[in-house]
Simulated scan of single mutants.
Amino acid sequence: MQHLIGLAGWSGAGKTTLLERVIPVLVAKGLSVSTLKHAHHAFDIDKPGKDSYRHRQAGASQVMVASGKRWALMEELTDAKEPELPELLGHMRAVDLIIVEGYKRHGHTKIEVHRQANGKPWIHPEDPLVRAIASDVPPPEGCALPWAHLDDAQGVAGLMLAHALPWTQEAL
Rank of each mutant, 00 (worst) to 15 (best):
W147T: 02
H91V: 04
L89Y: 03
A117W: 09
E112H: 11
W122K: 00
V113R: 02
A132G: 05
R105N: 11
K110R: 12
R93V: 14
T78W: 15
A94E: 15
I98F: 04
W71V: 08
R131N: 07
R131A: 15
A148H: 04
R93I: 12
A117V: 10
H114V: 00
R115I: 06
G90V: 10
L145P: 09
E112A: 03
N118F: 08
R105F: 08
M74G: 05
E112Q: 05
E141G: 11
R105S: 12
Y103Q: 04
V130W: 02
E76S: 13
G107S: 15
G119V: 05
N118E: 13
G142C: 13
S135A: 08
I99Y: 09
A134P: 13
P121W: 09
E84S: 12
V137P: 09
K81S: 12
H106I: 11
R131P: 09
A72V: 14
E76R: 01
L88Y: 01
A72I: 13
H124D: 00
E141L: 14
I111D: 06
V113E: 01
L145T: 03
H114D: 01
H91Y: 13
E101P: 05
L129G: 09
V113Y: 03
A134E: 06
P138S: 01
A132N: 06
N118Q: 14
L77Y: 04
E76I: 09
C143Y: 02
P121M: 06
E84M: 14
L145S: 05
E126T: 09
G102W: 08
H124Q: 11
G90K: 03
R93Y: 15
K104N: 08
H149P: 10
T78F: 15
Y103M: 08
G90C: 08
T78V: 15
